Computed example of a mutant assay.
Amino acid sequence: MNTTQQQPVTPQPAISTGSMLTQVSGVLAAIIILILACAWVAKRLGFASRRSGNQTLNISASCSLGQRERVVIVDVDDARLVLGVTAHQITHLHTLPARPQPETTDSPQPKPDFRQVLQSLMKGTGKNK
């Protein structure tokens, strides 16, 4: 008589699909919230660009009159517009003449070359032999 004793097999704990799905979706939600928070901080601190590709329209000044009311000066190609801005409408208040263009000099100062800069630095520190 051959008696074989079998040792009891302990089952390995199986990873449930539901808990893994919960973990993955939780991490994904945390990443999305982190991205949105970073975008909000960047916008609040002014890192995000507020301008569109059109450079002929600039807001040169703005003054708040209330929670949602403002007076804004907008520079366009040939004029400056004073606008009243509310939550529901924009009203043209006045037109100012365009800002004069700054005068440009015809001959810019030539930059000194490296040898001249080095000699002036050596003379200034007293190490010129």
Rank of each mutant, 00 (worst) to 15 (best):
81 L>W: 02
17 T>E: 02
51 R>L: 12
59 I>P: 04
74 V>G: 04
52 S>G: 15
77 D>M: 08
84 G>D: 03
22 T>F: 12
123 K>G: 08
41 V>D: 05
125 T>V: 15
57 L>Q: 02
121 L>N: 00
100 P>T: 03
68 R>I: 01
105 T>M: 12
17 T>F: 02
115 R>H: 11
12 Q>H: 10
32 I>P: 06
125 T>S: 15
58 N>D: 13
38 C>P: 02
98 A>Y: 04
77 D>C: 00
38 C>M: 13
79 A>E: 03
31 I>K: 07
129 K>F: 09
118 L>W: 06
38 C>D: 09
47 F>R: 06
10 T>S: 02
39 A>K: 09
44 R>I: 05
29 A>K: 12
115 R>D: 14
123 K>I: 10
25 S>A: 08
71 V>R: 10
73 I>H: 00
25 S>K: 07
112 P>M: 11
43 K>P: 04
92 H>K: 08
98 A>W: 00
94 H>P: 00
105 T>F: 08
78 D>L: 12
58 N>T: 14
12 Q>G: 03
59 I>N: 04
87 A>E: 01
37 A>T: 14
103 E>P: 06
3 T>F: 10
94 H>Q: 14
7 Q>H: 01
104 T>N: 06
76 V>G: 04
27 V>F: 08
14 A>R: 09
93 L>F: 07
83 L>V: 03
89 Q>D: 13
54 N>V: 12
64 S>K: 06
91 T>D: 14
20 M>I: 06
7 Q>T: 05
39 A>D: 08
117 V>D: 10
23 Q>E: 11
44 R>G: 11
11 P>E: 13
79 A>H: 01
39 A>T: 09
125 T>P: 03
4 T>N: 10
122 M>I: 12
8 P>Q: 13
115 R>E: 13
23 Q>H: 08
117 V>S: 12
89 Q>A: 15
53 G>E: 11
127 K>E: 08
27 V>N: 04
27 V>M: 04
101 Q>W: 02
31 I>H: 01
66 G>T: 00
71 V>E: 12
128 N>G: 02
38 C>L: 15
43 K>W: 15
14 A>I: 13
82 V>F: 01
90 I>V: 15
9 V>C: 00
5 Q>G: 01
38 C>W: 09
17 T>I: 04
99 R>E: 11
79 A>I: 01
83 L>C: 06
87 A>P: 02
22 T>W: 09
74 V>L: 09
127 K>T: 07
57 L>R: 05
13 P>K: 11
